[in-house]
């Protein structure tokens, strides 16, 4: 049963649009799946390999702008940006990794945070290539209906899921986790930590970049403040994984469902809309204190809370 769970969920998600959802509901679903894909990509680097990145907007943005620039400067369909972003973002990650992977722990986190901001400011200032703060508008959308977009992002997310699952169960996965747990010990076990951290960063970056390229096609408009946003992209990515469960296969999906729905829910409450960041912050604090491994990671603990009615003093 557990073995087939990914396929069952994929099947359910595949037939979900066929029951005739409203355009708004489809939009929410697309966002959930896109964020799940980004969360999974972050999880590979931050969750399994232990390199906590606060700058995933950099990869998302470079992916988005790969699509955007193809259209804006070369007049090529922005859909080509999705395959091309794999190459562009991998190369970008390689360069970035050369700088930031020399650092460990909090220093790595701060360097990635700075990199995300550097990318935003740079994109704003090279207007001849990126359109500057005006951004890039895709004049003609491919589809009016959301079906096509839904299945494309579902394909991306499913591909990301199975790729990461396959990787984590292989030698690479063992090496990533070994690096997370103790870099010196990993090095002394013959693991080339620099090489494997770079692999994790490039994979994570490229997978995030594909989602970014999809975003350009789906939303039809990008500007540096949106796609390189620290709080709306980088921090939300981390929150999704933290809430759902760090280093779990399903955590990013669960986290994405909760975060996207919560954001939409709060926005509908008058006078509270702008406070959704504050509420996200409070949610994160609660999660870190009570469910440090996230909802999926601490699922056994959650089940116990609901079951635990009569016997208060259970044996440990």
């Amino acid at each position: 049963m557990k073995k087939y769970l990914p396929l069952i969920i994929l099947a359910i998600l595949s037939i979900l649009p066929l029951i005739g959802l409203s355009s708004y509901a489809m939009h929410i679903l697309i966002l959930v799946i896109m964020w799940a894909a980004i969360g999974m990509a972050w999880n590979l680097l931050g969750g399994y390999c232990g390199q906590v990145s606060f700058g995933h907007a950099a990869y998302f943005g470079v992916g988005a702008y790969t699509s955007g620039i193809l259209y804006y400067k070369l007049g090529i369909s922005p859909w080509w940006g999705m395959p091309l972003s794999i190459v562009v973002v991998s190369l970008f990650s390689l360069v970035l990794g050369f700088i930031v992977l020399r650092l460990r722990g909090p220093f790595f986190a701060l360097a990635t945070l700075a990199m995300g901001e550097v990318m935003r400011v740079t994109t704003e200032n090279i207007g001849w290539l990126t359109g500057g703060t005006l951004g890039i508008l895709i004049q003609k959308r491919t589809w009016v209906s959301k079906f096509g977009y839904y299945y494309i992002i579902l394909l991306v997310a499913a591909g990301t899921f199975f790729l990461i699952k396959k990787l984590i169960e292989s030698k690479l996965g063992y090496y990533f986790v070994a690096i997370r747990e103790d870099q010196d010990a990993a090095e002394s076990l013959g693991i080339n930590t620099t090489l494997y951290k770079t692999i994790a960063l490039c994979l994570s970056g490229a997978l995030t970049g594909i989602a970014g390229a999809f975003y350009t096609n789906y939303m039809g408009y990008i500007d540096p403040h949106v796609v390189f946003a620290l709080h709306d992209i980088s921090i939300v990515t981390i929150m999704i994984v933290m809430v759902g469960g760090v280093a779990t296969y399903w955590g990013p999906l669960v986290g994405a469902i909760i975060m996207v729905f919560l954001a939409e829910l709060i926005r509908t409450i008058p006078g509270l809309g702008a406070a959704h960041q504050t509420l996200f912050g409070i949610l994160l604090i609660v999660i870190i204190i009570f469910l440090p491994n996230g909802i999926v990671g601490d699922f056994a603990k959650i089940k116990k809370i609901f079951k635990q009615e009569a016997p208060r003093n259970e044996l440990n």
């Binding site: 063992y174 090496y175 986790v177 747990e181 103790d182 010196d184 010990a185 013959g190 693991i191």
Partner: peptide
């Protein structure tokens, strides 16, 4: 000692056996 803390004993050794 530097065990890979959140890995099982077996996984600790598997990680190094991959060499």
């Amino acid at each position: 000692v530097k065990p890979l803390q959140r890995m099982s004993v077996l996984d600790n050794v598997v990680a190094s056996a991959f060499l």
